[in-house]
Design a protein around this nucleic acid. Sequence first.
DNA 1: ATGTGTGAAGAGCTTCACAGCC
DNA 2: GGCTGTGAAGCTCTTCACACAT
Lengths: 212, 212
Amino acid sequence: MKSIPNETIGRLFPYIRALVCLSKQGTDTVSSSRLAEVCHVNPAMIRKDFSYFGYFGKRGVGYDVQALKEEIQNILSLKPAKKVALIGVGNIGKALLLYKNFELEGFKITMAFDNQPNKIGRKIGDVTIEDMGNLEKRVKSENIQLSILAVPETVSPTIARRLADAGVNAILSFAPCQLAMPDNIKVTCVDLSTEMARLIYYSSREDLVKKR
Amino acid sequence: MKSIPNETIGRLFPYIRALVCLSKQGTDTVSSSRLAEVCHVNPAMIRKDFSYFGYFGKRGVGYDVQALKEEIQNILSLKPAKKVALIGVGNIGKALLLYKNFELEGFKITMAFDNQPNKIGRKIGDVTIEDMGNLEKRVKSENIQLSILAVPETVSPTIARRLADAGVNAILSFAPCQLAMPDNIKVTCVDLSTEMARLIYYSSREDLVKKR
DNA sequence: ATGTGTGAAGAGCTTCACAGCC
DNA sequence: GGCTGTGAAGCTCTTCACACAT
């Protein structure tokens, strides 16, 4: 059994997006080179990426757009849409609750928690905000495995721990990850400051090149 | 001239965070192995990362926490804090405007734009929301190079183009990047759906392993 | 003794180039 | 002819291991 590059996994969802787009344009068969164009990557990479999971194409023809999309959705376990618990209904949390596309894409925020009394009981989108005190109980009873952490940095390690104890095994956090979690729990941090810093580094370099 | 890994650049900001943290704890000298512990990485990687930029340590001793922090801030051009224009003051935009740490970290949102009349003129945090119609004029007059795009997916390519024309050379976007920009413009997309999909993939695998 | 800086080895990911099937 | 699937080559990033400075 060959090991699958992490980068390959990261490209699967963008492939789905491209396929949906092609499908809307009425394309029902696509070659690796056409798909590569749309995704701005190398055709060989696309073929290799798919090859880790099976034989999806027809030689001389290409890939069936619809079938390929479904294959990838299967690989990523996106059908039926996964239930997600949102912790922290501040501005970011609210934005996520109101973002319509998630469900289409394969995730559905079905529960939201906050500890501010004036928020508890209010409904945003389809979801009623619940009391953080019931977090463990509710997450367990709904058998939630995925969760988005959009709370202040200071409390995020504590809550991450509580989620882990309640059986969640993947967390997307908006606080920079110093969360030392057991390694059966996957954590991804959306670290805006680091991304900003990277951009600044490269754009300053670009300036230097221009000035030369 | 040796080329510097993109990954190295991406680790510089987290190093600053760790150094600030150590500094608060009263540490003023740190070895690569101690810093590696804090950052959960390999000590050799830390030494190699720094070696791309110069000789910052003392053999047998370690690194001066304060001096190293400042060196990295210099490399990333974070001092003085960079001015940033925010486009789109929805929930995400609002969250960013109210996020206090940015300025400390080296970025400062100094302008915000929206096209909704009821938002224009309102002040959030320190910033008064301006009319999107004045985008080019204002970005040019303030000589803004960095910008955060927090607008609906459908309009983001158009606005990205307008920003590029107005002289911005780096964009952080919250819409998935199909933005085909000239390559002197750096674009980073914060793609939550892709990160969610990746988490789901690995956490489902984890399940399989457990069940085995 | 302790801990940096670095060439060389190793691991991981991408691209090439071509055999094989439609 | 056209396009997939893939071993091999190439490239990039990480880790090792040790010379060297304090």
